[in-house]
Nucleic acid binder design. Structure first.
Lengths: 346, 346
DNA sequence: TTGAAAGCGCTAACAG
DNA sequence: CTGTTAGCGCTTTCAA
């Protein structure tokens, strides 16, 4: 036996399918007699009626000309094209979790996806009639133009270059970089290495480096190219950088890594090289992922509230889905220093 | 201007909408002239036509009586009801990533969701016409009955009590417990503590404990209730257990934790208490999450290939979606010991 | 306060 | 080889 449709319910309750639709959606609540409502609800339960979303989506575009799928898309960047996403990045789990919870609370479901090189996400968004989109990380701004044309509420997360159209939530990376560096300076460090992913690759690293430079400048310390170590955002880069730092003979006493994952690599690298952290080398990271609390010594780092980011992103996209003319909203989630055991005053 | 529909394309190409449908879906490929195909494809590109999934889903249930949404649902357990999921569990990220990749490769999208206490996931599954479902972790078997009634291909991941209906992918937890314990025994340890989550809570812990007992028995060592520490699967439990172990005076020289996350807590706890790992205490975990490689000392653990699990789960559900009469499939992903630095021969 | 009816965009017989 | 047509299940205007 097939699933009960709205018409089955109507027949069973002795009313029209329109009436059922009204009742089920709580619409025109004032205009329907309590008696009818009861009859309908009874039949709904009796037949185990569950509305078909596809039909709903298809049947209601007259309001505003837009289909509503009650689905929000989340676009997650891939480390490498054609590769799985999220790998070894604990960030996404926390983020997604928060988004999902908020979304479901509001009757939305989440469609998650990576991006294929050839297929633009806009196709998915259109074909699925997504009510909103959350985009994580940086994407080529040519793509963003396409998103804009789609007229689907979109929130950019951790993305610079958001233009004047998209909502955004993120952190002040430059200030974060400043905070981290400043923290080291206050502890008396002068030779502070900067270890990051490729600065060109994503605006984030550049911003954090700017903050690093800002703090140095304020302290009247010249920026020294020799203290900078670029690589890939990842654990291995940290290890390599640690070795390089140890060998460098630059008198480095502190390191600012633009990602905890790199900092953890550094930690490992220093330990391997017999360099005590924080005894001989102070270390500060960025992100405050779960691991940072766990490692030994626990990592001092720039804390960002990832779940809060997710919550806010979801909130914005849901609001915008209901109110398409909502003005652009930009939220910056505050940062703080999580003081732990990997830094030392000198 | 609204999006182009199939009829717009048909008009533009001077053919019927049926023809467009055929061409776009690559059906009846033999029966349509190349010329027509070209005409249609040209119009498709010209108008930027993108099929509407809702309409597709709705329009094609005649084949088999089932709607096809080209969506796969992934159900993720929540640590606490009404709470976000996945928090601090790196497992899900890796798993999801693999599933998503496989799914997209096959033209499916992923609908992810936690579970609310009141709303059964079956409603979501039905209303969204999901083509398949992947369920993570243990769920009350009463729920599972409902899933079965839905007749939607379902894969249970890491779930015992899978019955005779659902596909499943998982690991041999009992054997894993055996492997871990055996490993310690071979290193010469006799007093091996067992630290786990509540054994009643999930079959998993019980299984692993069984393996622990199996290995002890084989070595003719009596199982000692005093060496067992139950708690919550989490970092804090590890810390607490470490303290308890140190205080116990039971002559414990090795610990088997049924989850890396607990093992990491133990590590921290031992370090706090000034107990050297592996010098004075050997430690083995279970899961091989990313963190285990990173912590210091790196954690010896029972390795399971989480991504592989995801890949296989996705494969099965996709196969089953195409072939509903596919026979029940059960895949056990092999385990291995990741030998690292937290254990020592005595 | 309710019902009839016209679509939404697409698929799949069936007819030509 | 291609077009006609009747739905899929729901919403919503309009009329009763």
């Amino acid at each position: 036996m097939a699933r009960a449709t709205i018409r089955d319910v109507a027949r069973d309750a002795g009313v029209s399918s329109a009436t059922v639709s009204y009742v089920v959606n709580g619409k025109v609540s004032e205009t329907i007699s309590t008696e009818t409502i009861n009859k309908v609800m009874q039949s709904v339960r009796k037949l185990g009626y569950i509305p078909n979303q596809a039909a709903k989506t298809l049947g209601s575009p007259r309001a505003g000309g837009k289909l509503r799928s009650n689905m929000i898309g989340v676009l997650i960047p891939q480390t490498e094209p054609g590769k799985e996403f999220m790998f070894s990045n604990p960030f996404y789990g926390d983020f997604l979790s928060a988004v999902e919870y908020k979304a479901r609370e509001n009757g939305y479901h989440l469609l998650i996806s990576g991006t294929e090189v050839d297929q633009s996400y806009t196709e998915i968004a259109k074909s699925r009639s997504l009510d909103g989109i959350i985009i994580l990380g940086m994407f080529p701004s040519t793509d963003l133009k396409e998103y804009r044309r789609m007229q689907i509420p979109t929130v950019l997360v951790d993305c610079y270059d958001t233009g004047h159209y998209f909502h955004s939530v993120g952190i002040n990376d430059r200030h974060g970089g400043y905070m981290a560096t400043q923290y080291m300076l206050e502890l008396g460090h002068k030779r502070i290495a900067f270890v990051s992913g490729a600065v060109s690759e994503a605006g984030v690293n550049q911003m954090r480096q700017q903050g690093y430079k800002d703090a140095l400048k304020e302290a009247e310390i010249a920026f020294d190219e020799a203290l900078v170590y670029y690589g890939e955002v990842g654990y291995p880069h940290g290890i390599t950088a640690a070795e390089a730092i140890v060998r460098s003979g630059q008198g480095i006493t502190a390191v600012f890594a633009t990602a905890d994952i790199i900092a953890l690599g550094l930690l490992k690298g220093f330990q391997k090289a017999g360099v005590d952290v924080p005894g001989e080398m102070s270390l500060i990271g960025f992100d405050d992922i779960f691991l940072s609390r766990i490692c030994h010594p626990a990592l001092t780092t720039v804390h960002q509230d990832i779940a809060e980011k997710g919550r806010v992103a979801a909130e914005i996209v849901i609001c915008a889905a209901h109110d398409p003319i909502m003005t652009k909203r930009d939220v910056t989630i505050p940062l703080s220093i999580a003081q732990r055991d990997s830094t030392r005053r000198i």
